[in-house]
Design a protein around this nucleic acid. Structure first.
Length: 800
RNA sequence: GCGGGCGUGGCGGAACUGGCAGACGCGCCAGACUUAGGAUCUGGUAUCUCCGAUGUGCAGGUUCAAGUCCUGUCGCCCGCACCA
């Protein structure tokens, strides 16, 4: 039969558009299923073949759930604020709103061509004032609860473009666009206190069905560590506090290191004999990012502070103090005690600067390498700690420090607060004003949305301020609290803001009274299955969990976690096995595949390409295998005849239904397709199939290749749409065979395969095995040492 | 550097809690049909010194049995906080 995919696809897409079988129902008494994919950033390049992989996967999940009777919410929208659009707008002098509209239109038509079962009535766009009204509203609640605050932060500033640059725009220390020098400029920025939620963001992961690597990566990113703060007196007469996770090694501290930005550098300036050298080092360090600084591959650098020494509180020894960029100002207290014998970085530094290395935990050879094992060693050279194990020594030392009033136990997090300001145009305006008298004041909620004003130029200003700062009419306003003179905040929010709560808006996207109604949120939330890229694990995923927890705390949301289940897909790579990118020239456009093979083949290939969780290279040759499968499936309609079951096919049908059902739940889309390919092969061999069997097959295939499935279902006389027909069920007893082929090993090598009734017990199996000619021959004259029988699996006979 | 992950035929991959390595597909080979084939169908296809042995990045180990577990090692990929 001719496979006219163009005709079939446009026919069914039109019917779906008219009948809206995929619209989520307003009936809150039905069992619900909320499946979510990360909404895309509508870039100028359009969709590439990487996008449809997760979309198709969750489309399959959603379609199956619908067929299983769930009220499914499977929505789509646009995360449309952001840097590339703004940069394109500046370059081409087109309003970013227009750029966004064009990009969205293109993305939408590309997605629609794939037959994805999104509920388009619930489409959202983060740049829509009716949407960002609620992004601003959430920010105001955070502000009112004291979770938003101002802080001086270093930003990247291009000396030539006069623009604050994102880290990504800084390449090898220079501006990506003009290659001019980038300096670190201190600016006052809005911050969100995500660190207040650090503990809950770890502990609440417990009951969640997240894939393990996502959980561990989040936990490690938050980086909770149990340690102690220890006060060191200095010869300058003050106290230097350090954070350490190894207070047990205090007797081995032979020097100290403070971050180049540590406030004490200035405080001690008059006492420092080599102040100029110290400042020069600090300036050099200031040019590097944290990432560059902590790279260990580089040689350790640093400068000793001449003129001030610290005193080790447990033994009274004077030890030198260095500044070095391997200590970060933002973590702990920005100062460490260095124990070169038991820390690799300290060891490297000590070797380079010729500092003493004192062993305090026995078990290694500390003159040759740092001994960092905390499990086996015992304390030495440590006075009252001698002979203790590390864990006990930590406790003893912490107690000692506390008693002496020179230290205390302290929990620290690697997680830092969220920098929320951007000196950019294309983002949500921050709805605050700064009053001369009242300070920072929230604008009244009824004034939301605070619309992004029209400006003539989207270019940031000479000083690096947002372009909004040029709009004096807009900036100058009155204080809502006292009526006095005030100025609006001109920074905008980061792109992360809109994507931190978008899934809530899908529950009730047209609500103008609230971000969504309470009933809608209670019914739909939490998201039952959220799939997205691994690259979002530490930022977007954490930010959105933080916001959801906050909304739970202020009684907007009834669940404390937004996502019940989180999975992650692998990347689709170019044909050469490298990441697809314009510069590498290996980008594949899904439009071409849909044109040449059809959407069903495209969907099938994206799912058949490999393990959903792993990266896989695109192979244009392999696509045709999927198309052949669909053609052969379509051809079955020519041999389909009669009703009831075909005895030769009955078991394979039950097995296939079982496998496909389980595989979809387990994200094994590739093996589900393989099973259906095998089913076509079997049916073709048998040479017959009934009409109702083919209808069942169409149902099984419909989540994967919905257009072809609808077509065949209709030909078989199916009523209504296969897309919402009941999902096939199977009979467990019909999925097992009467006899099992047992591989029989002798000394671990397979010598025969013996067919044995499935019901046979261990003795029966052994008897049948020994009756086999080949086995009997192999056993002749040997002594049996051991007989292993694994029912249903294997027999192994060990002989001498 | 830190954190997370991956490594199986010519290629993409399959293999449940350790139990016949290579399902399914691509490619390739042979045949059929054909004026024609980059269409379709049928059969074959891990490697080798091919009655037998060897094979899951590499080197060890545990086990009756290891792709799967353990130790070490090499290579590749993702993230690192203002890209989304």
């Amino acid at each position: 039969m001719q496979y006219n995919y163009k005709e079939i696809e446009s026919k069914w897409q039109k019917i779906w558009d008219e009948k809206k079988p995929f619209a989520a129902k307003q009936d809150y008494t039905l069992p619900k299923y909320f499946s979510l994919v990360e909404f895309p950033y509508p870039s100028g390049q359009g969709l590439h073949v990487g996008h449809p992989r997760p979309y198709t996967a969750l489309d399959i999940v959603s379609r199956k759930k619908r067929m299983q009777g769930y009220n499914v919410l499977f929505p789509m929208g646009w995360d449309a604020f952001g840097l590339p659009t703004e940069n394109y707008a500046i370059k081409n002098k087109i309003h970013p709103r227009i750029v966004t509209e064009n990009n969205v239109a293109r993305f939408k038509s590309q997605l629609k061509a794939l037959g994805l079962s999104f509920d388009w009535d619930r489409e959202i766009n983060t740049t829509d004032p009716e949407y960002y009204k609620w992004t601003q509203w959430i920010f105001l609640q955070l502000f009112k609860k004291g979770l938003a605050y101002k802080k001086e932060m270093a930003v990247n500033f291009c000396t030539s473009c006069k623009v604050v640059l994102a880290n990504e725009e800084v390449v090898n220390g220079v501006c990506e666009r003009c290659a001019s020098a980038v300096i670190r400029k201190v600016k006052s920025q809005w911050m969100l206190r995500i660190t207040e939620y650090a503990d809950r963001l770890i502990s609440d992961l417990d009951g969640l069905d997240y894939i393990e690597r996502v959980k561990t990566q989040q936990i490690n990113w938050i980086g909770k560590s149990y340690g102690a703060e220890v006060d060191f007196a200095t010869t300058a007469g003050d106290t230097l506090t350090v954070y350490t996770t190894r207070c047990d090694t205090l007797f081995g501290a032979t020097y100290m290191v403070i971050a180049p930005e540590h406030a004490y550098v200035e405080k001690w300036a008059p006492k420092l004999e080599n102040y100029a050298e110290v400042v020069a080092y600090r300036e050099a360090a200031g040019k590097k990012s944290d990432f560059e600084r902590t790279e260990l591959a580089k040689e350790k650098t640093g400068v000793m502070l001449k003129g001030v020494k610290a005193i080790n509180p447990v033994n009274g020894k004077e030890i030198p103090i260095f500044i070095s960029d391997y200590v970060l100002a933002g973590y702990g207290t920005g100062a460490i005690m260095a124990v070169p014998a038991h820390d690799e970085r300290d060891w490297d530094f000590a070797k380079k600067f010729g500092l003493p290395i004192i062993e305090v935990v026995a078990g290694g050879d500390v003159q040759n390498e740092a001994f960092v094992d905390v499990e086996t060693g015992k304390l030495v050279n440590s006075d009252f700690l001698n002979g203790m194990e590390v864990a006990d020594a930590k406790e003893a030392m912490a107690a000692f420090l506390e008693e002496k009033g020179i230290g205390k136990k302290k929990v620290n997090f690697k997680l830092r607060d969220w920098v929320f300001s951007r000196q950019r145009y294309w983002g949500e305006p921050i709805p605050l004003v700064e009053c001369e008298k009242c300070g920072w004041v929230a604008i009244p909620e009824e004034e939301l949305p605070l619309r992004l004003p029209e400006v003539e130029s989207y270019e940031p200003t000479e000083t690096g301020e947002s372009p909004l700062s040029m709009m004096t009419d807009w900036v100058n306003c009155t204080c809502p609290q006292c009526g006095g003179k005030a100025k609006r905040e001109t920074d905008t929010m980061p792109q992360w803001a809109g994507s931190s709560w978008y899934f809530l808006r899908y529950c009730d996207p047209h609500n103008d009274k609230a971000l969504a109604s309470k009933e809608a949120l209670e019914y739909w939330m939490p998201v039952d299955w959220y799939n997205g890229g691994m690259e979002h694990t530490t930022l977007h995923l954490l930010y959105s969990r933080f916001w959801a927890k906050f909304l739970f705390d202020i009684d907007v949301l009834a669940c404390k976690e937004p996502y019940a289940k989180r999975t992650s897909h692998g990347m689709i790579l170019g044909e050469n096995g490298e990441k697809m990118s314009k510069s590498r020239g290996n980008v594949v456009n899904p439009d071409d595949i849909v044109r040449d093979y059809g959407a069903d083949t495209m969907r099938l290939y994206e799912m058949f390409i490999g393990d959903f969780e792993k990266a896989a290279p695109w192979n244009p040759q392999s696509i045709k295998g999927c198309k052949r499968f669909l053609e052969r499936f379509l051809d079955l309609s020519e041999i389909a005849a009669g009703e009831g079951v075909t005895p030769e096919l009955e078991k394979v049908f039950h097995k296939t239904i079982k496998k496909v059902t389980a595989d979809i739940d387990n994200m094994k889309f590739n093996t589900a397709i393989a099973a259906m390919m095998a089913l076509v092969n079997t049916i073709t061999e048998v040479g017959k199939i009934t009409r109702c069997e083919l209808s069942t097959f169409a149902k099984l295939l419909s989540p994967f290749a919905p257009h072809v499935a609808e077509e065949v279902y209709e030909m078989m006389g199916g009523k209504g749409l296969v897309s919402i027909a009941p999902w096939p069920t199977y009979d467990e007893s019909k999925t097992v065979d009467d006899t099992v082929d047992f591989p029989v090993q002798i000394n671990g090598k397979v010598r025969a395969v013996v067919a044995i009734p499935a019901a046979a017990d261990k003795d029966g199996i052994l008897a049948a095995v020994k009756a086999d000619e080949k086995i009997a021959a192999a056993l002749a004259g040997k002594t049996i040492v051991k007989e292993i029988v694994v029912p249903g699996k294997i027999v192994n006979i060990v002989v001498k």
